[in-house]
């Protein structure tokens, strides 16, 4: 049923477009979720110094590659928004698909990394460091998957030149996922 947009969606008393305002509030709640998890991890990590030996078994190279991949995909996301601003739906969709490519690369690298670690016996129940490692990276991975699917949906609209402002929204969400990884990377990989 063709959804008739109520007038409410077109009002902007605060001057910030409604979609972007909702996205900022969503990111606000995400900050508290990831914040709660990372703060719990940080407290445990500071308390149990020997976790450094456990952390030694994390693969920093894979972490660095993933950081590079996410930073690059963030660049593509902002270029997609840049293209959308100039009403160029096709270019925006192209960049969105590059970003999704980055997301998939990230997941592939993470998959390889995890299988290697699990094969070595560092499973989620190995010890509390690894429990936090898989929970935090896993929750982040879910957000990467959610971001990639959202971008795929938005890119189809872009091809038809519709709802171009959504490119910016999904771009903001993607940058947030990148920022979470920017903090996850040193916490999980570098703090050895």
């Amino acid at each position: 049923m063709a959804m008739v947009q109520p007038i409410a969606t077109r009002r902007s008393a605060t001057g910030i477009p409604t979609g972007k305002l909702a996205m900022w509030w969503l990111l606000g709640s995400e900050i508290t979720i990831f914040g709660g998890l990372l703060v719990s991890y940080i407290m445990m990590r500071i308390m149990y110094a020997p976790w450094a030996e456990a952390a030694a078994h994390t693969n920093t190279l894979a972490g660095s590659i993933n950081t590079f991949v996410l930073l690059t995909s963030s660049l593509f996301a902002v270029l997609a928004h840049h293209a959308a601003e100039q009403k160029n739906g096709k270019l925006a969709a192209f960049y969105l698909w590059l970003t999704i490519g980055g997301a998939l690369t990230f997941l592939v690298v993470k998959g390889l990394e995890w299988t290697n670690e699990i094969r070595h016996g560092f499973t989620i129940t190995a010890n509390s460091f690894w429990s936090f490692y898989y929970t935090a990276a896993g929750l982040h991975g879910l957000h990467v998957i959610a971001g990639a699917t959202a971008m795929a949906i938005v890119s189809f609209d872009c091809l038809r030149g519709k709802n171009l402002q959504r490119v910016e929204l999904v771009g903001i969400y993607w940058h947030f996922v990148d920022i979470v990884w920017i903090f996850l990377f040193p916490l999980l990989y570098i703090a050895k």
Binding site: G28, I33, G35
Partner: peptide, 16 residues
């Protein structure tokens, strides 16, 4: 919204 975040993380940890 500002207070439920840590508990959602906690719920994930408790669920595991």
């Amino acid at each position: 919204m500002a207070s439920v975040g840590p508990l959602i993380a906690g719920a994930a940890m408790l669920f595991f």
